[in-house]
Amino acid sequence: MPPQYRILVTDYAWDTLDIERSIFDPIGAEIIAAKTGEEAELLALAPPIDAIMTNWKRVSADVLKAAPKCVTVARYGVGVDNIAVDAATELGMIVSNVPDYCVEEVSDHAMALLLACARSITTFDRDTQLGKWDLAAGRPMFRLRGKTLLLIGYGNIARTLAPKALGFGMKVIAFQRSREGIEDGIVLTRDLAPALAAADYVSLHLPLTPTTRGMVNSDFLNQMRRGAFLINTARGAIIDELALREALQTHVIRGAALDVLSQEPPPDDHPLLGLPNCIITPHAGFNSVESVEELQERTARHVIMALQGKIPPFVVNPQVLNAAHLRLRA
């Protein structure tokens, strides 16, 4: 018997799709897992597809146009900058995400990167592994209590990070336009320049949009205080990476700790690879056994809801819900 639904999975960062299959099998849905996730392959697979699930691979307008039966695109994760959302809206497809998952993991990762900077962990580890027992290599180091952390953007992850930093005795400043969600103990600022000049650590928590792309440029970095560290667990393209390399090499700032890059995995000649004052982890902030299992299950259930004519939670393009060409099937 042919499947009732076909669901294209462009890519995934875990070992198997067993959780998704256990959810889809009862409704007669078949998973079509792309081998490479590149556009040419997705274009070939798209025509019979009823839904798309995507992790990091680009789901372009052309891929969406090649899928006339597709009712929804579900993101494994928070950001949707890899999905042609405007094209999906024009075609009547619902785009969903899971914005409230992995907030503990990413906020833990941001705090871990901050601590690694504060305590020169990677410097000491590299030197010791090479047979160098040199306490001076990590100097100067300063007590964390009393230092200032600036959170640029104050969504779910930043709000979860803030009390962790407060627990270390840090002063926490949040840069955002409204007071919404600002808890006791957090200082709100709407003026970025003096906050950058005052902060010992600057942590980015913004979505990637045309406005935020490249916002951390030379001007931004030159407004940071000398001796400060930049932390990014958001999106790599928020940073002008050539400008950051220059700032690190000329000690405009002391260091950076990044879980995201503009190109992942990075090419061998990426401008930030090999810098002694730049920590890079492989977009691992979201990862834990618990968060991945939660992500697999919730994303799959969003797809089932759309296939059954129901509106999933966390619709990224709500304007499509009132469109005459909405593909949701009653």
Rank of each mutant, 00 (worst) to 15 (best):
D240W: 15
T233W: 08
T122W: 04
Q296V: 02
R329A: 03
D191R: 13
P271E: 02
C102Y: 11
L8G: 02
T148I: 12
G77T: 08
T299P: 03
C117V: 13
P313Q: 13
L326F: 03
P47A: 07
D191K: 13
N317E: 10
Q263N: 07
L114A: 02
L149G: 01
L91C: 12
R298H: 02
E39K: 14
K57T: 09
T123D: 00
L161A: 15
A34R: 15
N277F: 08
F220N: 08
T36C: 11
D184V: 07
D240H: 15
F175P: 01
E183N: 05
L161K: 11
G77D: 08
V59Q: 04
V292Q: 01
L161D: 03
P282N: 07
A61D: 07
N232E: 02
P265L: 00
V59C: 01
I279A: 02
G169K: 04
A324F: 03
H270L: 10
A88C: 08
I279D: 00
A13T: 10
A256H: 12
P282Q: 05
L258V: 02
V202T: 15
N232H: 13
E39P: 02
A84L: 07
A193F: 05
D15M: 15
F229R: 15
I279F: 01
L275H: 05
L91F: 06
R143Y: 06
L321H: 09
W133Q: 08
I31H: 09
N222A: 10
G155D: 10
T10M: 01
L326V: 06
G37M: 00
I239L: 04
Q129V: 08
A330L: 12
D81E: 11
I304L: 03
Q4H: 08
V292Y: 01
A247P: 13
R301T: 08
F286L: 04
H251G: 04
G37Y: 05
N97Q: 15
A67L: 03
R159H: 08
M141R: 07
L45R: 09
Y76D: 01
K171W: 00
P271G: 01
R126M: 02
Y12W: 14
N232M: 12
D259E: 04
T250F: 11
A243R: 06
M224K: 10
L144A: 10
N277M: 12
I173F: 14
R58M: 10
L261Y: 06
H302Y: 07
F220T: 14
A67F: 05
R301F: 00
L248G: 01
A243E: 05
E290Y: 05
E241A: 15
K69V: 08
K310T: 04
K132I: 13
P210V: 14
E183K: 13
E30H: 04
D25W: 02
P3Q: 04
L151G: 09
V95C: 11
L248M: 03
N156H: 13
R179Q: 12
C278T: 06
M224D: 00
L45W: 14
V172A: 11
G153K: 00
I23Q: 08
R190D: 06
